[in-house]
Design a protein around this nucleic acid. Structure first.
Length: 145
DNA sequence: GCCAACGTTGGC
DNA sequence: GCCAACGTTGGC
């Protein structure tokens, strides 16, 4: 299983809206960046995804999983743009803020820190476990730790 | 609201 | 194929 992080501006698409979609999940559409799209092409069913609020909040607020692999983005006719579906799994008991992530030496190499403008990005398993721990979750079981 | 970083576009 | 101009993202 691989780990990822996706960003969304909460006033456009929030974690609450994502949760409201339930198990049906939701297309992660609107990505118009090749690097981000290429990462989505690598995603497999059941891969875990941090849901991060950008611009406002600046924190990891929950965990989702990939519920459909790569397919055309329904919001455009341009066949270059594809996306996956994700569905909400659990809230972060304690949202993990960007300042906390930056302050943690173990997370100094996170793409979130190193390449601020990439909206879909890989997360290493070590980073995954660490961020979950900071948020009060066991990174494997996703149960409160 | 500003601005740095970075990706894309288009002229040559 | 280079690079200047421009647009967008996202932290502050």
């Amino acid at each position: 299983m691989k780990y990822w992080l996706v960003k969304s501006e909460p006033f456009k698409w929030s974690w609450q809206m994502q949760k409201d979609m339930g198990d049906a999940g939701q297309e992660w559409d609107g990505v118009r960046n090749y690097q981000a799209r290429n990462f989505m092409r690598e995603m497999a069913l059941g891969d875990r995804v941090f849901f991060y609020h950008s611009n406002e909040g600046l924190e990891v607020v929950g965990i989702a999983e990939v519920s459909a692999t790569i397919h055309p983005d329904s919001t455009t006719d341009d066949e270059r743009w594809e996306c996956v579906d994700i569905r909400a799994l659990v809230d972060m008991p304690v949202p993990v803020g960007l300042p906390d992530i930056k302050a943690n030496p173990k997370l100094a190499e996170m793409v979130l820190v190193v390449n601020t403008r990439l909206s879909v990005q890989p997360v290493t398993s070590k980073e995954w476990m660490e961020v979950c721990k900071m948020g009060g979750l066991d990174g494997k079981t996703l149960k409160p730790a």
